[in-house]
Amino acid sequence: MVNLRIAGQCLAPMCCAAYACHVLAPGQDTSQVMSMTDEQAHTPAPPPDDKVLGLLGNKKAPAMHIPGAGNLGIALLIVALGMLFAASLVSYLVVRYHMHLGPGAEIHLPPGLWVSTAILLISSGTIHWALAAVRRDQEKMLRLALAVTFALGIAFLIMQTANWLDLAAAMHRSLAAIHAQADVLLPGGAIIPADRSLVQHHDLLVLFYVFTILHGLHVLGGLIPLAVVTLRAFSGRYSRNYHPGVRYSVMYWHFLDIVWLLIFAVLELTF
């Protein structure tokens, strides 16, 4: 209880706010630098975080170095986002449980989902490679691994977009089928057609979009800080003793990966 050290290193999560925790601990860089050993002293002194990406650019930020604060912050963020995704999955399962999908209007998950899953899994490996590299002070490897991870993140989003477009046709078909036999219009624009199973197929599609887009937004939110971390790696900011940005990105990225595997498994099993 007292040492609520969340074993979050292996899990990792989410939006721009993830980065906020990093950026929002001002002065971490400067004081870390002072504790560097001589061989690292040649690395250019990193500018204080607030000048690079301060949310509001207030230069009078109190200079504080709080060891471990960033890690704990990211871990708590992962807990919060974990609850968010857990609640989404539970709601999906309950709604799905109430559905009675009849035959007809068959919808299949786009096969491209397997591709995006593979991409995300590989990117989880490459970002771990980045962490291993920075721990061994292999700067070139770190840059490469971060750049590849970033590219894979973009590739994942592109692949997901293709998947969303893939299902758009099915979405149109189900909407058209519903409209073709619409007989009741509820306040608020909801429609109850004679064939309920059509509607439920449509609902299932919408939920697919909701949860995959929710995850995609979190990937996007992770790519922004990852881009900053990658750029900093290219300017030689990180070393074996100082690489908080890399660590936070790794935690968050693994979390996104696990969440996606869960979402994907649930969708594959229930769609």
Binding site: V94, A190, L207
Partner: peptide, 16 residues
């Protein structure tokens, strides 16, 4: 989107 998650008229579950 007018879908049924919580609205029982559309197959949703208000108790959820």
């Amino acid at each position: 989107m007018g879908i049924g998650i919580f609205n029982s008229a559309l197959g949703g579950d208000p108790v959820l």
